[in-house]
């Protein structure tokens, strides 16, 4: 479905990003795996190359404008174009209430989840305009529509991310660029596993609140993102797609 398409995945070396990179590669795409930790990205890339795919690893921190610009340039120089961007890099913040949140933690959370998302689209979209279109999928969060204890900065940042997604969708729809996001619910990623169990809802309690009664795999989030990026979703834009096993509907 993505034969010879050039795809960029940020936060592409673990969790949802790595799962999506593998699916894109399996479907014929040339994939750039971008993340801060180059060694982990290279491992994902080697795996895709071993399976016969074309892939590169790029070291980039999406919060840094110069690095984002260089990242997108490297994709275009290597593959000649950029058809799909999966802007997936995220940061949970410091898992505190807003009173306890430090300015540094607040800034890091917003710099990655909001400014980073804006910067990625800021540099990806001009190339897509030049080539006549493209598809962007952002990773938002269920916390863009509800919240969870001690996730103030993250909740606020992901609400902002949804706003950025629909604004981008509106501005660039006439130029054949579709922009959507996935809003993952509880997903078994390093990010979820890295949350402090003393401060957060235990996984078993979380499971009982989810109508489908289970935590998702990263692959299930990736499948939704890949589908949104595909031509099968050619009339879908401005959608923040909840992929949460029904968690949001069950509020009391």
């Amino acid at each position: 479905m993505f034969k010879d398409k050039a795809v960029l995945v940020t936060g592409g070396n673990s969790g949802i990003g790595a799962a999506a990179a593998r699916i894109f590669a399996r479907q014929g795409a040339r994939v750039a795996v971008a993340a801060r930790r180059l060694v982990a990205s290279q491992a994902v890339v080697e795996e895709m190359r071993a399976a016969g795919g074309e892939a590169i690893a790029i070291a980039a921190d999406v919060a840094e404008m110069d690095q984002v610009q260089a990242m997108v340039e490297q994709v275009v120089q290597t593959f000649g174009r950029i058809d799909v961007a999966f802007n997936n890099a995220g940061h949970t913040g410091d898992n505190t209430t807003l009173v306890d949140c430090t300015p540094e933690a607040w800034d890091t959370c917003f710099n990655v989840n909001v400014r980073g998302l804006w910067l990625c689209m800021k540099y990806e979209i001009p190339h897509m305009l030049g080539q006549g279109g493209g598809a962007i999928v952002n990773t938002s969060s269920g916390l863009a529509e509800f919240s969870s204890p001690r996730m103030a900065a993250y909740t606020a940042a992901k609400h902002a991310a949804n706003g950025l997604t629909i604004s981008a969708a509106l501005d660039y729809a006439p130029h054949n660029i579709r922009v959507n996001s996935i809003m993952p619910g509880a997903t078994l990623t390093p990010m979820l596993q890295g949350l402090d169990p003393k401060k957060h809802v235990p996984l078993d309690d979380m499971r009982s609140k989810i109508p489908l009664r289970r935590i998702a795999s990263p692959e299930e989030m990736a499948e939704a993102a890949v589908w949104l990026a595909s031509d099968q979703a050619s009339y879908v834009t401005g959608v923040n797609l909840m992929v949460d096993g029904g968690l949001k509907v069950k509020r009391w």
Partner: peptide, 20 residues
């Protein structure tokens, strides 16, 4: 099966109409 974790939402299929 690819959407096995998607339930309980309203999917706007409108070419962006609802965000405008």
């Amino acid at each position: 099966p690819e959407a096995a974790y998607i339930t309980g939402l309203d999917f706007a299929l409108d070419g962006g109409f609802s965000v405008y």
